[in-house]
């Protein structure tokens, strides 16, 4: 039988056993901070190094980080509120199409 952690689950693949920590709660909760440190760290490189870009605005400190964060949030919000909000339908919406 399966269990959520997989530690006592005979059906878990042997190659996956050393990686069951990927499902741990501590990892999920700490991932936010790990990514924050990494993102800020790479953005901070711009403080010490001037990037040369084809588009001058992109030479602004942390430009790509800001654009990446903003774009991601915009994509999710528009998808959620506009696409799902306006165009979302029940799963069986197309069932029986053309059968009448």
């Amino acid at each position: 039988m399966s269990d959520q952690s997989g530690k006592h689950d005979d059906l878990v693949h042997p190659a996956a056993r050393p990686f069951l920590w990927l499902d741990a709660k501590w990892l999920k909760s700490s991932m936010l901070w790990v990514l924050l440190v990494l993102a800020v760290g790479f953005a901070a490189i711009d403080l010490f190094h001037h990037r040369h870009e084809y588009v001058h605005l992109a030479e602004t400190t942390g430009f790509y980080a800001l654009w990446g964060f903003g774009s991601f949030v915009l994509a999710v919000m528009v998808g959620w509120f506009v696409i799902r909000g306006l165009l979302g339908r029940e799963e069986d919406y197309w069932d029986g199409e053309g059968d009448q």
Partner: peptide, 29 residues
Amino acid sequence: MQLLLAALFAFAFLVRMKWYPDEKRSVNI
């Protein structure tokens, strides 16, 4: 790397804040 890591952070942030849409059984026209 700036672009990708900041976007990854945005995902983790939205999930933590519960501002990421649930996966639900639906279709979008």
